[in-house]
């Protein structure tokens, strides 16, 4: 059971009016290398990300998931620095994460409270929001995704598509300035994939979307191809996808 897609997500009345025009934070990677168990995952990355819609594509094991986790400090580099509007993710991680939201591949592991509304409130409590403001913010965010009716539901009884929308809403309720997605559509059927695609396209904050789903990034401002631990291509979506098809499949 899934609800009809609601009004444009993230653009509900009551949202900060300036949100739609707020510039994306500038994320800079300076000489970033990351290894794991003695194996290099990413090496010598220098990037400056400031576009509103950025896609990241690449094969399994290419390091794109690690790249995503670098952007909000879930992973900090072995060498080099990651700066978000000048803040180092190594020393100011919590502050960075309040501005850079993260949506994971598997919503089962992202929804951490037994009731949907409790899960939505979790991030707001962590931001230190006054208790009396929380229910209003939660209701507003659920409504903006057309899932207000799920507020009192048990998390484990939601469908796959509903879970992914709740996971997305629970990040958006924190009003991040940019959201990083790690393969948000991989586990979804076509219908739910399209709902997530539309939700991402319509939302106010900037987005960095890591995905296998080449069509998802077709309208984006910029697409990176991660290959063998580095950025192999960086440019417009059409050319990036063409490069990826030629060299990686």
């Amino acid at each position: 059971m899934t609800a009809p897609a609601g009004p444009a997500p993230g653009a509900a009345p009551g949202e900060r009016p300036s949100a739609a025009e707020a510039p994306a934070p500038v994320i800079e990677l300076h000489g970033v290398s990351v290894g794991y168990d003695g194996r290099t995952v990413l090496s010598g990355l220098d990037l400056r990300l400031a576009e509103r819609r950025i896609g990241v594509i690449g094969q399994n094991g290419s390091g794109k998931s690690t790249l995503a986790r670098l952007l909000n400090g879930l992973v900090v580099p072995d060498e080099g620095r990651v700066l978000v509007d000048g803040r180092d993710t190594r020393t100011d991680g919590r502050r960075v994460r309040s501005e850079v939201g993260f949506v994971f591949q598997n919503p089962d592991n992202q929804i951490v409270f037994p009731i949907v509304a409790e899960d939505m409130a979790f991030g707001l409590k962590n931001l230190g929001l006054p208790k009396k403001e929380i229910p209003g913010r939660v209701a507003e965010a659920l409504e903006s995704f057309g899932i207000g009716h799920l507020a009192e539901r048990h998390s484990h009884l939601l469908s796959g598509g509903e879970k992914q929308l709740v996971a997305l809403a629970s990040v958006m309720v924190m009003r991040p300035r940019t959201v990083v997605f790690d393969e948000p559509t991989t586990l979804l059927d076509l219908r739910n994939r399209n709902r997530i695609r539309d939700a991402v396209d319509a939302m106010a904050p900037a987005a960095v979307v890591v995905t296998h789903d080449l069509e998802l990034v077709s309208g984006y401002d910029r697409v990176l191809v991660v290959h063998e631990g580095g950025i192999a291509f960086d440019g417009a979506p059409g050319e990036a996808v063409a490069w990826y098809r030629e060299h990686c499949s």
């Binding site: 990351v34 690690t66 879930l74 992973v75 900090v76 580099p77 072995d78």
Partner: peptide, 8 residues
Amino acid sequence: MNRRQERG
């Protein structure tokens, strides 16, 4: 990989 280390 350098996951954030916290004490305790």
